[in-house]
Amino acid sequence: MPALTLPLPSGDTWTRADYEALPENLPVRVGLVHGALVVSPRPRPIHQRVARRLATRIEDAAPVDWQADTDVDVLLDDDETEPVEIAPDIVVYSAQHDPYDRPIPADLVALAAEVVSPSTKRKDRRVHPRLYAEAGIRHYWRVENDQTAPAFAIYTHELDDATGHYIATGVHHDRIVVTSPFGMDFGLKGVHER
C-alpha cells in the first residue's frame, strides 16, 4: 500500500478550514481534536454493519423532527485555535439541519453513539464521551459487541447537568426500551447477529 500523504495545516494547529479542505475519499478516518488531526483506520465490516442496523432502527423509531445517520461530522467545539470535529458512528440530530451540509452543530444533536472496536476501545469508552459531554450532547450510547466484550450490550447514558458528565441509564442486551431522547422499543438480535 502506498504511503498516505496529507496536506499540512496552514499554521501550528489544524483549523476547521484546513480540516474541511481535506478530500472526502481518504482511505482512513480523520477527526479534529483540539486542533490536532486524529487519524484512525477504516472500521471492519462488522462494525459498520452494527452501526448501520442500529441507526436504521433508531431512525424508524424517531419522530419526524429527528434523523439518524452514520459516520457524519459533528462540530463539538468551534474554538479558533483548538476546534473539535469528529464523526460518531451514529448521530441522531434535528431534521432542521440540511443533510447536505456538514458539519452538524452539536446543539442540534440529541444522541451520539459509538460502536466499540478493538482499535477504538479507549476513544469510545473515555475520550469521545468526554468530548460529547463537553459539547452538551444529552445522550451517549456505547455499543459493545463480541469483539470487545463477553456479550453484545448497549450502554445508555444521559448528561447530568450538575456535573457535566454522563451518568449511566441502562444496559441493554436483547431489547432496548428507552423514553429519551424519544421513545424507542425494539429488539437487538438482528442488530449484531449475522
Rank of each mutant, 00 (worst) to 15 (best):
T120Y: 15
E158M: 06
P150F: 05
T163S: 12
P63D: 06
P118F: 15
P118A: 14
L131W: 11
D146R: 15
I90E: 01
A68M: 09
L131S: 08
I104F: 01
E82R: 12
P105T: 02
A133F: 01
S180F: 05
D65I: 07
S117N: 11
P103A: 03
Y93L: 02
D71G: 15
D89P: 00
A110L: 05
W141V: 06
A149C: 04
M184G: 02
H128M: 15
R138M: 09
I86E: 00
H172E: 04
W66V: 09
T169I: 12
E158P: 05
V92Q: 00
Q67H: 08
A162Q: 11
D107I: 11
D174T: 13
D161L: 12
Y100H: 12
E158D: 11
E114C: 05
D160I: 08
V74R: 10
G170P: 13
V84L: 03
T148C: 09
T70I: 14
V177F: 06
V64W: 09
D124F: 14
V74D: 09
I90T: 01
E144R: 10
P150Q: 05
D98I: 06
F182A: 02
L131M: 12
F152A: 04
D124S: 13
D185N: 03
S180H: 10
H139I: 08
D161K: 08
P83K: 00
V171F: 11
A68Q: 08
V84Q: 01
P105K: 03
P88M: 02
A113I: 06
P83H: 00
R125G: 15
D146V: 15
Q67E: 09
E85H: 01
V92C: 02
P103Q: 02
F186Q: 00
H165N: 14
V143G: 02
E80I: 11
E114N: 07
S119C: 11
T81I: 05
T169L: 13
W66Q: 07
E144L: 12
P103R: 02
Y155K: 13
D79S: 06
A133E: 08
P63I: 07
E158C: 11
P88S: 00
P83A: 00
A151F: 13
